[in-house]
Design a protein around this nucleic acid. Sequence first.
DNA 1: CTCATATCAGCTTAACTGAAATTG
DNA 2: CCAATTTCAGTTGAGCTGATATGA
Lengths: 147, 147
Amino acid sequence: MSGPAPRWAERPPAFPHLVKWVEMAVRARVDRAIRPHPVSTVQLLLLVMLEELGEATSAQLARTMQLTPQAMTTLLKPLAERGLIARTPDPTHRRRVLLRLANEGRALLADIRRSTTEVEESLLAALSPAERVQLHALLMRVATSLI
Amino acid sequence: MSGPAPRWAERPPAFPHLVKWVEMAVRARVDRAIRPHPVSTVQLLLLVMLEELGEATSAQLARTMQLTPQAMTTLLKPLAERGLIARTPDPTHRRRVLLRLANEGRALLADIRRSTTEVEESLLAALSPAERVQLHALLMRVATSLI
DNA sequence: CTCATATCAGCTTAACTGAAATTG
DNA sequence: CCAATTTCAGTTGAGCTGATATGA
């Protein structure tokens, strides 16, 4: 047995703590699901972001993901070395390097998506289809408003 | 300037990635806000959890926060040493140690809450009051369903 | 005996600060 | 000169696996 389910007081955790809490539950499950594939949760988010954006610089990705530029550099390095991300110099700004998802990255993402859709289903099992749409839309608005 | 806001494709990130994304934005802001206080985001969540539960064992906390028991031990240690958490042996199960928030912990939490309510306001600025309630309720249901 | 609890030890990875080179 | 981009280097912290001891 795993012990009795904890009772909750009247006042639930405030929004910032609640987000952290849900994230920890999500990460535990995603980590387990993608263990066969050699990518971390953050690396996976980065690949998804690049897929969405199509093309972006390292600095731009750092801002969107709320990381320091240095952290983004170290995050990108192994992905580029593995050929998941393609790097091309920006013709207009010679200091910039444009990043996009390589075919290998796209293939890996498609492969992983088979596992993660299952995880998503189990994560949202407590919600109705309408509520899932609602939650997704609200989170998306919060996320995009914070860039 | 911080560059143009990225355009988003039609298909937004799936729920697991979206949660991670929001969490990173939240953490960046909470970290900055609580920097004067010597606690991390996860330690803070732990204190909030203990406040909610009133009393819990280390193993129970590890399950609710989706961490390994070992990780919970190392997370608790500095907090107990600083007197933020009180440890009392369980009279019925001699192997267990019951944990509760000490007065020092309660005071620290009250102190921090002044900063975090500001952060919460800025995080949810894009949502109406009704939408905030809705988002909070949905996240709470997801979190509790995953213990 | 088996399962749960608690903890020690070692390790890996993530993300930080600091510093520097380059370009607009 | 100043601001933005990229990257190297060193450092801390968070969370993992493995192993161990003890109690229900």
